[in-house]
Every structure is written in C-alpha cells, then in structure tokens.
C-alpha cells in the first residue's frame, strides 16, 4: 500500500492541475494508523470553491490506494499563507504561466515585482487585484505586452 503522504502528492489542485495539494500547503497533517488515515486540510481562501473537490479527490486517491478508512478534516488556523508553497511548485506555476507569489509574504518582506511569465521582464504592471480565481491577480508585461496571471501573496 502506498503511504498516505505519497498518495496525497498525486492529488492535483483542481484549479491549477500542475501543482498538487501537498506542495501548495493545503494538506496540514496526516495521521496514519494501520486501520485508518486522517487528513487535515486548510482552505487557501475562505470562499475557495475547490475545497469540496479537493476533499473528494483526497478521499478517492487514498481509497484507491487501499486505505479504506479515510477521514478528511478542515481547519483554518494557522491561516494558510503562500509561503507554504514549495520551491518546486513555484517553478511549476511559473512554467504553467502563473507568476508565483513572492517569498516571505507573512512578514511583508522581500516583495519584488513579479516577472512576466512569457519574456521574464520585471517591468510589469498590475491590471487588477482580482483574477479568474480568488488566489490570482492580473498583470500586464510592459515589454512584451502580454497579460499574465500572478498568484497573490497572502
């Protein structure tokens, strides 16, 4: 039987399928006993419509790997932050066309302008703080003029 953490690494984020729920920092705890698995997840945004989908996919992935007793819990403290997104997931976001969030959002330090995901230029402008999902903002590159999405730093 595949261990629970490895199973969870195969569960994609339903909105951004290039990254998985573990590398996004959505999975907070996993308790594994010989009989059951309890997974604790945290929402990225209060109104994130993907949470239900995420819970279902987690259940499905664990059950199809042979974990029959699965419980999924949700907790909101400590509050999810983009700082929990792994380095690897940041690169995956970038190659998918979404500028990853800056590091150390929680303390507000080190906030650089996100670089264009097409040409890499750092001359970009905020078009709107709200994009196609709650976690993204819209930006425009001032060099290649392409619009692109930016994963908001929270």
């Amino acid at each position: 039987m595949v261990n629970a953490w490895d199973c969870l690494r195969s569960v994609p984020d339903p909105e951004i399928p290039v990254v998985d729920v573990v590398s996004m920092g959505i999975v907070r705890e996993v308790e594994e006993t010989p009989e059951s698995v309890t997974v604790t997840i945290t929402p990225t945004y209060s109104g994130c419509p993907a949470m239900y989908e995420i819970e279902l996919s987690i259940r499905e992935a664990l059950q199809s790997a042979g974990h029959t007793q699965v419980e999924v819990k949700t907790k909101i403290a400590p509050v999810w932050t983009t700082d929990w997104i792994t380095e690897e997931a940041r690169e995956q976001l970038r190659s998918y066309g979404i500028a990853p969030p800056e590091r150390r959002c929680a303390s507000g330090n080190d906030l650089k302008t996100p670089a264009c995901t097409f040409c890499g230029s750092e001359k970009t402008r905020l078009q709107s703080e709200f994009g196609s999902t709650p976690c993204k903002a819209l930006r425009v590159c001032l060099e290649c003029l392409q619009p692109f999405e930016h994963f908001k730093c929270i």
Binding site: P43, Y45, S46, G47, C48, P49, Q127, S128, E129, F130, G131, S132, P134, L138
Partner: peptide, 17 residues
C-alpha cells in the same frame, strides 16, 4: 470585465466567511 471579476471575487470571499 476586471471589475466584474473583482466584485464576484469579493462576493465569494464574503460568502465563504
């Protein structure tokens, strides 16, 4: 369009809260 998205996003946050 951007504002349509923004208002819907804020609505979603509020309903989630």
């Amino acid at each position: 369009l951007e504002e349509d998205l923004a208002l819907a996003n804020i609505a979603l946050d509020l309903i989630g809260q």
